[in-house]
């Protein structure tokens, strides 16, 4: 069971208080009407499944009800950072490669 820091509550809480909401940073196309079927299909259905760094969205479902982002290693399950909606990750697959294994 993961131990997750909610950036809004400012506390670590048990995983059972949260719900995973899948890959983070999926942006709904701004002009859906002029988006091709293929692009729309990508937005709706296609997701990454990386081994290693994964940016994912969680919601503090039975806490503050806030959505936020988590950078998690899908091998070790280590959570490397949490950040609020609208912010960008500082730990990415690229920074991990440059900095070596942390």
């Amino acid at each position: 069971m993961l131990h997750i820091y909610c950036p809004y509550c400012g506390e670590h809480r048990e995983e059972s208080e949260f719900r995973p909401k899948g890959q983070a940073h999926i942006i709904r196309p701004k002009d859906p009407v002029n988006t091709s079927d293929e692009e729309w299909g990508d937005y709706l259905f296609f997701r990454e499944n990386p081994r290693g760094i994964h940016h994912e969205m969680w919601v503090h479902a039975v806490g503050c009800r806030k959505f936020f982002n988590v950078t998690r290693d899908t091998v070790s399950y280590e959570i490397l950072e949490v950040y609020k909606m609208g912010e960008q990750p500082t730990v990415t697959a690229a920074t991990q490669q440059k900095g070596g294994q942390k």
């Binding site: 479902a61 009800r65 959505f67 609208g86």
Partner: peptide, 14 residues
């Protein structure tokens, strides 16, 4: 549905 409303408000139309 409450979570659905929060999702759209918080992530797309804050």
């Amino acid at each position: 549905i409450l979570e659905w409303l929060e999702l759209w408000h918080q992530t797309e139309w804050p």
